[in-house]
Design a protein around this nucleic acid. Structure first.
Lengths: 230, 230
DNA sequence: CGCGATTTGTGCACCCCTTCACAAACACCT
DNA sequence: AGGTGTTTGTGAAGGGGTGCACAAATCGCG
């Protein structure tokens, strides 16, 4: 499930604060989900709770980490060191959670050679060599939209089967390759939609405003505060 | 729906390439969804297609923009100008899509006064004044996790009802306030899960590997290549 | 003016996810 | 050892989204 990473983060926080066990309801509250849902999620990866007591935090962390394949540190290659790429290269949230940025790449040769956070930017054409010297399991695309598809093709060509795409475009990849997309502007637009809806509702509480704002009701974009898509 | 922004982006691309009308199937292919789903989505905001022809691109753009509340440029306040905040402040994908970063804030006084992309960083305590001088509709939190809740409280206190949270933690906000969360590490962990699963399946195609990798099947984390959240 | 081709809009069935509610299991206390 | 309270694991019901398939509608052409 896409919720497992959230559970994992909450569990780490609990472990840091000294808890050795958690009840399903306690963990559910920390993550913001229903306790039954959480129990069902955890039951899917085997029973690791003790009735009357709860779940062993350390054991659960190990289990979830194992399922997510985080027992080993995964190497990621970041393509595109523009504005966003710079930030991602320096983001310390990756190293703490089982990932290591192993290579920085860019198509712009004027950027090649630049050093960011201890890594030297290399040209995207060196991708085969980079994969050869350091097994890359995930590629991150932080290029402008027009360049994204070409980069994705290159990543796929060298055997990368998981791509995180920050470019605002859809990538076409062969079967067996997973793509996740993060579009920052879309997130804002969804919030804008809610904002617009709230404004209309408060202005016209009786009629509900135009038909546009009075959609079926639950249309409220899946879940708020749910990690991307989730 | 959370898919409307994706439709909007595809429509803009079509408009730029000269198309005046699109069939539901053409647009669906561009976005990567089922054509029936797309037609149903569009029908929820009133019928704006012509049978036998398709949808008028310009008209549809206006309609979706209107539903999303993008007819006016929305002002966002960005709190936290660390690594990620810097990138967001300089990200040009916002201005092109109906958003304007109106203020940069940080709790660290040593950062106050710094100029980024033509904006001067101000202290987070100035939030009430900033909202007063420039109506803010969305707040973006790009602070470390421990500071995020306090910032959220401050944003709510000055009347912000939509928050985009990049800090890896859950925010508790009163009803009526929408929070969307983007956790970059979680995205990578989800990809790691898929990677781990693929590795196990190819190694043990018959048994499907351990029970961990042989979950119910459709567990594959909602949708790939769906904007967060989806 | 009529006919065929094309495309929208939607009723219907299906499936997955979510949630409630409860039985089984465990620990603690007496 | 037995009772009691707590918590897990799960069966069943409900809801929402998804996709198929088809009727209605429109355009273009003869």
């Amino acid at each position: 499930m896409s919720r497992l990473p959230e559970y994992l983060r909450a569990l780490h926080a609990l472990a840091d604060s000294g808890h050795e066990t958690v009840s399903s309801e306690g963990l559910a509250n920390a993550v913001g989900v229903n306790s039954a849902k959480l129990r069902k999620d955890l039951s899917h990866l085997g029973s690791y709770g003790t009735r009357g007591v709860g779940y062993d935090v350390a054991l659960l962390i190990d289990q979830i980490s194992s399922v997510l394949g985080l027992t080993q540190c995964r190497a990621v290659a970041l393509v595109g060191v523009g504005n966003l790429g710079h930030a991602l290269a320096g983001y310390d949230g990756f190293a703490n959670r089982g990932f290591r940025i192993a290579a920085l790449l860019d198509a712009d040769r004027s950027r090649v050679g630049e050093e960011i956070n201890g890594l030297v930017v290399r040209h995207v054409d060196e991708l085969p060599a980079i994969v050869a010297e350091d097994s890359i399991s995930i590629g991150v695309i932080a290029t402008p939209a027009p360049a994204a598809q070409a980069v994705a093709d290159q990543l796929v060509a060298v055997g990368v089967t998981s791509i995180l795409n920050f470019a605002p475009c859809v990538l076409s990849v062969p079967d067996g390759v997973d793509v996740r997309k993060v579009d920052l502007a879309i997130e804002l637009q969804i919030l804008s939609f809610h904002e617009h809806r709230k404004a209309s509702l408060t202005a016209l509480p009786a009629t509900g405003g135009s038909a546009l704002t009075a959609l079926p009701g639950g249309l409220a974009t899946t879940e708020t505060q749910e990690a991307i898509g989730t």
